[in-house]
Design a binder for these strands. Structure first.
Length: 397
DNA sequence: GACTACTGTCATCTA
DNA sequence: ACTAGATGACAGTAG
C-alpha cells in the first residue's frame, strides 16, 4: 500500500522532471487520444507544447517518425476494441508490443483506456462537457494541467467519464512523476480476475473482484502477457494508477469523511483526479453496501425459511394434538352413549315398563337434578341455552 | 446454448 | 441542500 506521503510531490521539484510521450499521451488518454493534436485547441500555446512533447520523444527515438506513427497507433488501438480484440493473435500482439517499444507506451494500456467496458462513470459527472487539456512540455520538464478529449472520438462507453468536463485550474496542478513509476507500463493492462463468490468484507474484497472488467476469450489470450500483480488490480486501481492518484483505492474508500475531504484539499489534484477519487470512493462504498445489503437479504431469507420450517413443525404438532383430542372426544362420546343406554335400561315408567331412549331424553335442571323429558317437549337449542345459562351463573359466582 | 448464482455498478430513495 | 447508506434493477461473468 502506498502511503499518501509517498506520492507527495514538491511542485517546484516536479517541474524539473522529464515527461515522456507516453506520459503525455496518457494525460490525454485520461480522456482520449487525439488524432489531431491541433484541433479543439483554444490556446495556441497548447499546440506548441504538445508538438514539442512529441518532438522531444522523437529525439529520444532517432529514426522514428512518431508524427506519422500516431495514426497507425490510433488504428491499432481501435483494432484492440472489444469486437476485434477477441480475434487478436499473438502476431498482432507482438506487433503492438513492438509498437509500444517504439512509442513508449503500452498498447494494452492504451487499448484498455480506449475500450474499457463498463467504464462509463469514471468521470461521468461532467461527461457532457468538452474539456481542454494543456500539456506543457519542454526539453527538461513538463506539467500536466489536465486532460482533454471528446468522448465522440471513442466508442460508446470508453472513458466518456474520464474525459468529461475537465477544466484545468492553475490551483490544482498536479505533477505526474513518470520516472518513479517504472512499472507503470505493465499496470494498465487487461486483467483476468477470478470471481470472489463470498460475502467477505475484508480489505481484499475491495480489490480482488473485478469480473466485469475481464473479458471472456480476450482475457485468456492476453492474460499470458500479464503478471499476477497486474491481474489482481481492480479497474479502479488501474484508473487510479493511470491518473497517478497518490492514494490507494483502499485508502480512498475506507478513509473517514473528514479525512477524505481534508485529503482532497491538502493535495494538488486535478479536477479529473478529484472526480475519479470521488467515483472510486462512491463505487467502493456502494460495493460494500451492496455486499452488506445482499448479506442482509440472504439472512432475512434464511430466517424466513427457518420460520417456515418451525411453523410447519408447529402445525404438524398441532395437527397431532387435534387428532388426539378428536380421539379422546370420540371415546368420551362412546362412554357417554353407553352410560346413557345403561341409565335408560334401568329406568321404568309408572307401569313398570322400560323407558325407550328414542322417546325420552335425560335433561339436567338448574338445581343439578336429572329429569326424564319426552323428546317432543325439548325445544331445539334448549339444551344449549340451558348450558349457556349455567355458564353465566358460574361466571357470576 | 440455456440457466443460475454471484458480483459490480448505477439510479433512486431515505434518514 | 448535501451526504452516506440502503436497495432494486441491470449487465457481465463463470460454472
Amino acid at each position: 500500500m502506498n502511503s499518501p506521503t509517498h506520492y507527495n510531490v514538491n511542485f517546484s521539484e516536479a517541474v524539473s522532471h522529464d515527461v515522456s510521450l507516453h506520459e503525455a499521451m496518457l494525460r490525454c488518454s485520461d480522456n482520449t487520444f487525439r488524432r489531431d493534436p491541433v484541433a479543439r485547441t483554444s490556446q495556441p500555446q497548447e499546440q506548441i507544447l504538445q508538438l514539442s512533447s512529441i518532438t522531444n520523444t522523437e529525439q529520444t527515438l532517432p529514426g522514428t517518425n512518431l508524427t506519422g506513427f500516431l495514426p497507425f497507433v490510433d488504428n491499432q488501438m481501435r483494432n484492440l476494441s472489444q469486437d476485434h480484440l477477441y480475434d487478436l493473435d499473438i502476431n498482432i500482439l507482438d506487433e503492438t508490443n513492438l509498437m509500444s517499444l517504439a512509442t513508449g507506451f503500452d498498447p494494452m494500456e492504451v487499448s484498455w483506456l480506449l475500450e474499457e467496458p463498463g467504464y462509463d462513470s469514471g468521470l461521468s459527472l461532467d461527461s457532457s462537457n468538452n474539456s481542454t487539456s494543456v500539456i506543457k512540455s519542454n526539453s527538461s520538464h513538463s506539467i500536466c494541467e489536465g486532460a482533454t478529449g471528446s468522448s465522440s472520438d471513442l466508442s460508446h462507453h470508453d472513458l466518456e467519464g474520464a474525459v468529461g468536463g475537465y477544466c484545468p485550474e492553475p490551483s490544482k496542478l498536479c505533477y505526474m512523476n513518470d520516472k518513479s513509476d517504472s512499472h507503470f507500463h505493465g499496470d494498465l493492462v487487461f486483467q483476468h480476475v477470478s470471481h470472489n463468490h463470498t460475502y467477505h468484507l475484508e480489505p481484499s474484497a475491495l480489490e480482488s473482484t473485478s469480473e466485469s472488467f475481464s473479458m471472456p476469450g480476450k482475457s485468456q489470450k492476453i492474460s499470458r502477457y500479464l503478471n499476477d500483480t497486474d491481474r489482481n488490480l481492480s479497474r479502479d486501481e488501474q484508473r487510479a494508477k493511470a491518473l497517478h492518484i497518490p492514494f490507494s483505492v483502499d485508502e480512498i474508500i475506507r478513509m473517514p469523511v473528514d479525512s477524505f475531504n481534508s485529503m482532497l484539499s491538502r493535495h494538488y489534484l486535478t479536477d479529473l483526479q478529484v472526480s475519479l477519487i470521488r467515483d472510486i470512493r462512491r463505487r467502493g462504498k456502494n460495493k460494500v453496501a451492496a455486499q452488506n445489503c445482499r448479506k442482509r437479504k440472504l439472512d432475512v431469507i434464511l430466517n424466513l425459511e427457518d420460520d417456515v420450517c418451525s411453523l410447519q413443525a408447529k402445525k404438524e404438532t398441532l395437527k397431532r394434538e387435534q387428532s388426539q383430542c378428536h380421539k379422546a372426544i370420540n371415546i368420551m362420546k362412546q362412554k357417554l352413549h353407553h352410560l346413557y343406554c345403561d341409565v335408560f335400561s334401568r329406568l321404568r315408567d309408572d307401569q313398570g315398563r322400560p323407558v325407550s331412549p328414542n322417546q325420552y331424553a335425560l335433561q339436567c335442571t338448574h338445581d343439578g337434578s336429572v329429569v326424564i323429558v319426552p323428546k317432543e317437549l325439548i325445544i331445539p337449542g334448549q339444551k344449549k341455552e340451558n348450558q349457556k345459562g349455567k355458564r353465566k351463573n358460574e361466571r357470576k359466582n
